[in-house]
Structures are given as structure tokens and as C-alpha cells.
């Protein structure tokens, strides 16, 4: 009896702690939406600078995600399927962008790509200006979001039993065909979820972008600019519009997660 009461008491404490944390996580965003949501939604139609910043954010985040998927999927397959020397080093390289402060990531990219650097000078000689251009925004987004894509894609590929590829090989597929005809179609929901997560991370990036490209302004930089120049009142609609946009990947991820679980339970 005493044990049951202690258990019930423990459950109540856990529920209260969980509720406090959830409230803390939800309340700022809900308050922001309550105060600036309507203006933010209106701003999407009437504020040309906001519309431009959001369009640039969506475009550059999409470009960065496509790059992360094209370059990261083979690496994710390799990490999921093969044991090799230097695996720990590859993991460290992938973890590093997630561990360093994002302005530091921006500074590192600036050192690499500024016109005074060998790479920056070479690109400039070829007519490619990186710093202060949409290319810089894409690269900053790629730096912070590609590790997230590779990690999630690796899990999605590892979820597909490698024997499926083996069966496809015995049925006449080359290695490449077996990956394209079997592994990728079987892992596509997980890969899409990885891409959506990476896209969301790219779209919400600020720290690295602000170092590399104050102009042209993505939405997060615009929100910061309005806040520092005009104060909270002007920043609120931009911030609220960004929160509203964040709901798109959020809903997509939930839907993909639910479908993926259903498919996985049948496949197993």
C-alpha cells in the first residue's frame, strides 16, 4: 500500500516536472504568436522586404538541403553499411559543426572564403563572389545542416536490412542499381525526414549567416536587424512570420514519422 502511494506520488512529481518544462518550451513561442502573429501574417502580404527575406531563406535553405542530400547520401550509406578505418575521424568531422558556436562557424567560413584567402581569391578571380552573396548563405546553411542530414540519413539507410541489397545483387543488379532500386526507395521516408530536418535547421540559421552575409538578408537576419534598429515592436511580426513558417516542416516531420513507423512495423 505504502509502495503504491509512493509510486503514485512519484508519478505526480514527474508529471509536474514534465508540464513545467513543456510550458517553458511552448510559452515563449505562443506569446510571440499571440502578440505578433496577426501582424506577421499580414506582413507576408504587405511587407516587401519581409517577403523578399523569406523567399531568399526558402530558396537558400532548399539549395543547401539539395546539396546536403546529394553529397551526404553516399556518405550516409557508407557509414550505415561499412566498417572502415578512420570511421571515428569521419564522425568527428560530422559532429564538429554541431558543437561549435554558430558565429564561430561563420568566422571559420569567412577565414576560408574571404577575398584575402587563397580559396576566396581564386573564386574571385573566376568571377565568383562568395562573401555577402546568396552563395555564402547556402554554404553557411550547409555547414550547420549537412551533419544533421547525414546522421538522420545514416539511420534511415541502416534501418533497411542489407540483405535486401544482397538479394537484388543475386537478381542481376549491380551495386549501384541495388542501392537505387532497393535501398533508396525503401529508405525514402527516412531520407525525406532527414532532408526536412536539415531544411528546417538551415532555414532557422542565423549565427553563421550573419558573419558571412549581412546582405542580402535572410529572414532571421532581418528579424535581428529590425530588433536592433527599430526595437521589439518592429521585430515581432518578422519573428512571428518565421514561427509560422516553422510549422510547415514540423507538420511534415510528424506526418512522415507516423507513416514511417506504420511501414516499418509491416516490413518487420
Amino acid at each position: 500500500m505504502t509502495a503504491r502511494r509512493a509510486l503514485r506520488g512519484g508519478s505526480v512529481v514527474a508529471a509536474l516536472a514534465a508540464s513545467a518544462l513543456l510550458l517553458f518550451l511552448a510559452l515563449p513561442t505562443l506569446t510571440l504568436l499571440a502578440k505578433g502573429g496577426a501582424d506577421g501574417a499580414r506582413g507576408l502580404f504587405v511587407d516587401a522586404e519581409l517577403r523578399g527575406a523569406i523567399a531568399l531563406t526558402l530558396l537558400t535553405a532548399t539549395a543547401s538541403t539539395l546539396l546536403a542530400a546529394s553529397l551526404g547520401t553516399p556518405l550516409a550509406w557508407w557509414l550505415a553499411r561499412r566498417e572502415f578505418r578512420g570511421r571515428a575521424i569521419v564522425h568527428a568531422v560530422l559532429d564538429l559543426p554541431l558543437l561549435i558556436p554558430h558565429p564561430v562557424a561563420g568566422i571559420a567560413l569567412l577565414v576560408l572564403l574571404a577575398r584575402g584567402s587563397p580559396l576566396g581569391a581564386t573564386l574571385l578571380a573566376l568571377g565568383v563572389r562568395v562573401v555577402g552573396s546568396p552563395i555564402a548563405i547556402v554554404l553557411a546553411m550547409l555547414f550547420v545542416s549537412a551533419p544533421i542530414y547525414v546522421s538522420a540519413a545514416r539511420e534511415a539507410i541502416a534501418d533497411v536490412d542489407p540483405r535486401y541489397e544482397g538479394v537484388a545483387r543475386t537478381l542481376g543488379d549491380s551495386f549501384r542499381e541495388s542501392v537505387h532500386r532497393v535501398t533508396l526507395p525503401m529508405a525514402w521516408r527516412g531520407l525525406l525526414a532527414a532532408a526536412v530536418t536539415a531544411w528546417a535547421r538551415a532555414a532557422s540559421e542565423f549565427g553563421a549567416i550573419v558573419i558571412l552575409a549581412w546582405q542580402p538578408r535572410v529572414a532571421s537576419v532581418l528579424a535581428y536587424d529590425r530588433f536592433t534598429t527599430y526595437g521589439l515592436r518592429e521585430a515581432l511580426p518578422v519573428a512571428a512570420a518565421l514561427v509560422l513558417i516553422a510549422f510547415v516542416p514540423l507538420v511534415a516531420l510528424r506526418a512522415l514519422g507516423a507513416r514511417r513507423q506504420a511501414v516499418a512495423s509491416v516490413a518487420r
Binding site: 543475386t170 537478381l171 542481376g172 549491380s174 526507395p185 525503401m186 511501414v263 516490413a267
Partner: peptide, 20 residues
């Protein structure tokens, strides 16, 4: 030779049919 050039048919205990 790689598997695709050996012309063998393989059936596992789990049928491993392609679910897509």
C-alpha cells in the same frame, strides 16, 4: 565475379520481398 554475374537465386528464411 560479383553476385550479379554468378546467376544464382537466393532465398532467405525471411522472404525479403521488396516492400515498395
Amino acid at each position: 565475379l560479383p553476385p550479379e554475374r554468378r546467376h544464382v537465386g537466393m532465398v532467405y528464411q525471411r522472404s525479403l520481398l521488396f516492400p515498395h
